[in-house]
């Protein structure tokens, strides 16, 4: 069996505790929430922290507060399964509930938190391997080495942003609250990430993500579609989050965010702009889907071939738009011939 490296465990009871531990231990320590991402990674020596600061005991970080009219606040330690079947999310922030419900497997959704999901490490199939495998192929710059095996010669790491909920939250204009030794701040999702496989989070290492704030629902409709090999267990290799504020059948505002095609969720703003002021007709859908596929630049470091992931981006954007517009998913359904 793969074993965890030795570490010290520091259980925090309050956010203040956690902030203090982080400040004390600096770069030696990491935060752990559900541990579903971090522990497997530690077993493969992607991380070897001397100490882990456990957030599980912080009650104030659990639960969903607020409503669709005023906006909803989700505590970072809320587990994904509680979000997947949360009535307010299902009714008003469907993309988020769907994304939470599509993460991994039932067991991991019961353990994995939304905070951890938003901060989940970027992935690459040269990197998510055991220490001895990585040593055998030659370490890469994300851990223990200095080159990139996917794009040799590249000065940066292209590991893939693999959170399901991040694109959905971003598309709905969510913000995150960060608390650190220097105090508290709230930033938009679009500024939480950096397009870098190693330093993928723009937050300070000593900042703790405490809450996610969703704005009032206010006529927004949303959808999330996920590409993966199997119906369970697998990380996204393409995520498509579409949100639109509708006025009758005309789109007033829209955001399209792609997951798992770059080191950060990627906003397809030109495509979204093309939706505004339009009815969601098949012609509009085709045009928008073509535009949205543009920013999708997958590389050969996940499951499926990357040209395939690129091709499917178009299809998924079109299907997500259809879903929002209440159109059948694609052409005729099979039911009539089944």
């Amino acid at each position: 069996m793969l074993r965890l490296p030795p570490f010290e465990y520091l259980p925090a009871r309050t956010v203040a505790d956690a902030v203090k531990y982080v400040a004390d231990r600096g770069a030696d320590a990491m935060l752990v929430a559900g541990g579903t991402d971090l522990y497997p990674n530690m077993k493969r020596r992607q991380f070897e922290p001397k100490a882990l600061i456990g957030l599980r005991g912080i009650r104030e970080l659990r639960g969903v507060r607020g409503d669709a009219r005023t906006g909803v606040t989700i505590g970072a330690m809320t587990v994904l399964s509680d979000l997947a079947d949360h009535p307010t999310l299902l009714d008003h922030y469907a993309g988020v509930a769907t994304a939470a419900g599509l993460v991994s497997s039932p067991q991991l959704r019961r353990m994995g938190t939304i905070g951890g999901n938003v901060c989940v490490d970027t992935r690459c199939n040269y990197y998510n391997q055991t220490y001895s495998w990585r040593k055998a192929i030659g370490f890469c710059m994300k851990k223990d080495g200095d080159t990139c095996l996917v794009a040799p010669g590249s000065p940066r790491c292209w590991a893939v942003s693999s959170s399901d909920t991040a694109p959905a939250l971003w598309s709905l204009g969510a913000r995150v609250r960060l608390v650190g030794p220097a105090g508290e701040r709230t930033i938009r999702f679009s500024t939480l990430y950096r397009d870098d496989g190693i330093d993928y989070l723009a937050k300070q290492p000593d900042e703790i993500l405490t809450d996610i704030l969703l704005p009032p629902a206010d006529g927004w409709r949303s959808a999330y579609l996920k590409l993966r090999r199997r119906g369970s267990f697998d990380f996204p290799v393409l995520g498509v989050a579409v949100a639109a504020r509708m006025d009758g059948d005309v789109v007033r505002e829209a955001r399209i965010v792609l997951g798992a095609v770059a080191s950060t969720p990627r906003e397809a703003d030109r495509a979204a702009a093309a939706l505004v002021g339009e009815r969601v007709t098949p012609e509009v859908i085709t045009r928008v889907a073509d535009l949205a596929a543009g920013p999708s630049k997958p590389l050969d470091n996940t499951d499926f071939t990357h040209p395939y992931r690129k091709k499917v981006t178009r299809v998924f954007v079109a299907r997500a738009l259809r879903k929002i517009a209440g159109l059948p998913e694609s052409g005729a359904s099979t039911a009539e011939i089944g």
């Binding site: 199939n125 391997q129 055998a136 192929i137 095996l149 090999r229 199997r230 119906g231 267990f233 499951d303």
Partner: peptide
Amino acid sequence: LMEEQVFRKGLHKTPSMLDYKSPTTLE
């Protein structure tokens, strides 16, 4: 439909239960 034992740079590409794709009950 999915299982393949494939190699890259002399190494097994997916030596784990997560990355070596084998169907779940849902498939």
